[in-house]
Design a protein around this nucleic acid. Structure first.
Lengths: 346, 346
DNA sequence: GTTATTTACGAAATCGTTTTCGGAGATTTC
DNA sequence: GAAATCTCCGAAAACGATTTCGTAAATAAC
């Protein structure tokens, strides 16, 4: 390991006091431009940069923000969160903060990950996603008074900062689109019920039905996990109904993938006989059969923005002004019933 | 923020010296079992755990290992690396180390990410993937003498620890399979040439040709990026040849996805008229049209193992004994020419 | 019963930084 | 020209842990 120089040796080399050098490096006041320049040059020359350990000890900050990947694992075998991480990192790398990530193992032990993060690692801030209607993570963080920002809103606790890609509009617009095509019985394959996005999706779904004066039929909505297999099973249940849906709105592209599989199993053509719409714009959507119509999810940008919000929060801004709801946009491919589209819809 | 207790206050409460408390907490010798138990109980009661900043300052370690995501971004909109991270984290969470991740922006600035990691953050170890035949990252880390483990081997520098999911066997076995089906002209759609996996894939490809006494035709191998679009374009070039391949081996499932698209464009049926095999077992492979035959890539396990190797290296073990080459296994679906399989192959 | 050895604990130094406070010199004000 | 105000820099005190080394008591050896 190459020999490192510390701030006192650097100061000695310069014939200055350590305090002066420190102030120069951190661009605090009380040091002339001339010496500041001199210090910076010397630091560059000797390859000096302050040891984080020393600085953190003194300033009582960890310069660290933690991101916890939600369980279960299969949910994250998904480009979504990697994009999010990329966005977070890109923004964070412009700051002194570093990003540490931990993975919650199961729903039960997930809180332990949070505890380790704040009580042992002492992170300065926390980020996470997949908010739930009733979310113990939020309660914990608010109780400990640690700054955090979530991907998704929640019904839990006091106001907190979030970026929310609004599932309500996906549910409403997707369903409305099917209704516009003449469908009367529309299936909803939702993500797990405890998730906030599931609740919002169903709200949008109901709103669209109501606007069209269509009845709500509880048989038509089934909650599944966020995977292809679970989407497959959910769709099978839907299709086995005595009066099955003629179109299916899905809470996630992976679910939609399974759903199209289930439709094909019955000998019908997904996207033609039974149209399907997903959510979150999975990169392989265009390569499915048929190409999947879906709603956008600008996760990279969401990651960037979450960092902005967290920084603002730590800067003293109030949580209420740091809440953003983004509307996803419909991405038309062909699984939603392209023959109608071809007939003049676009 | 809840009031924290530090080690001197804890010691005062116990009527012990700080040194004794410290030794008890870290289970170093020189403290009786009785007082050790007493200290541990008190620590639990007061919710004390040592401040990482203080400990790191004193011990001159960062207790941090860094993972750098390779550029370009599109390569990572891929479950592969998320699984790897999950594996790494699962193993690392059993140790005092924390995982910090950074994303290399471009190939040019990637080294800066490494430099920031070791020279500023002062991580104790580094991990990364997508090794290259000539890899400046390896040179840098070896020169600085920082412990690291890579996903993939390389031709660069002195021996270092790695886990390598052997692309040679994918190239060889995939190609041999096609040859066994009677194909004489087999296309190879490889990942970018600078990557080690590309080199190994081609080696395997050539080996299979040689074993079957088939000629090598440079026109039949084209290197593309690791994305669907690039796979699409690469396959178009292959299919536009005057004497085009009758089967295509791909260095990646995303490439294979694009290739099947390209085949369909020409009016032929991918997997039937022109069989295709990919690599890395993308979770959506089974849902492509046709379902994609591919090679396994146990990335979660690889992540776990990489942590073992890194820890062993930091523990003084020699790099040479910390190199593992894993053979991927063929996962038969139907894109490799299922009609032949149905005819008795399985 | 004396001496040698072990065992258990404590005092103090140390890691590298930031920050407070004070003061000398330069500059402005009246 | 004296007083007041700025500018710039330095000495020293934290921050919270670990580790070395010394020493008293307890045990073992003879």
């Amino acid at each position: 390991m190459k020999q490192r120089i510390n701030i006192v040796e650097l100061a000695r080399h310069l014939g200055l006091a350590v305090s002066t050098v420190s102030k120069a490096i951190n661009d605090r006041g009380d040091v002339s431009d001339a010496t500041k320049r001199r210090v910076l040059e010397a630091a560059e020359k000797f390859g000096f940069s302050p040891d984080p350990a020393g600085r953190r000890l003194r300033t009582q900050t960890s310069e660290t923000i933690g991101f916890v990947l939600s369980p279960p694992q299969t949910h994250f075998a998904h480009p979504f969160f990697l994009d999010l991480l990329m966005g977070i990192d890109q923004n964070l790398s412009q700051t002194p903060f570093q990003l540490i990530i931990v993975a919650g193992r199961t729903l039960e032990t997930e809180l332990d990950s949070f505890r380790r993060l704040v009580e042992r690692q002492r992170v300065d801030g926390v980020m996470f996603g997949r908010t739930r209607r009733d979310d113990p993570r939020i309660r914990y963080l608010q109780e400990r008074n640690v700054p955090f920002v979530a991907l998704g809103r929640s019904e839990t606790g006091k106001p907190f900062p979030f970026v929310d890609i609004d599932r309500t509009v996906a549910g409403r617009n997707g369903t409305a689109r099917f209704i516009g095509f003449g469908h009367r019985r529309i299936g909803l394959l939702s993500t797990p019920g405890y998730l906030m996005i599931s609740h919002l999706l169903q709200e949008g779904y109901r709103a669209a039905l109501k606007a069209a004066k269509l009845p709500f039929d509880a048989d038509l909505v089934v909650e599944t996990g966020t995977s292809e297999e679970e989407g497959l099973n959910g769709a099978r249940r839907l299709l086995a109904l005595s009066d099955p849906p003629t179109a299916i709105m899905c809470g996630h592209d992976l679910i939609a993938t399974g759903a199209m599989q289930a439709i094909a199993e019955t000998g019908r053509r997904p996207g033609v006989d039974i149209p399907v719409i997903g959510c979150d714009n999975h990169p392989l959507g265009p390569y499915l059969n048929p190409p999947l119509t879906t709603f956008s999810a600008p996760t990279f940008e969401a990651g960037r923005r979450m960092v902005d919000l967290l920084l603002a929060l730590m800067d003293g801004r109030s949580a209420k002004e740091l809440q953003e709801i983004w509307s996803p946009e419909l991405i038309l491919r062909s699984s939603h019933g392209s023959q109608l589209v071809a007939a003049g819809e676009i």
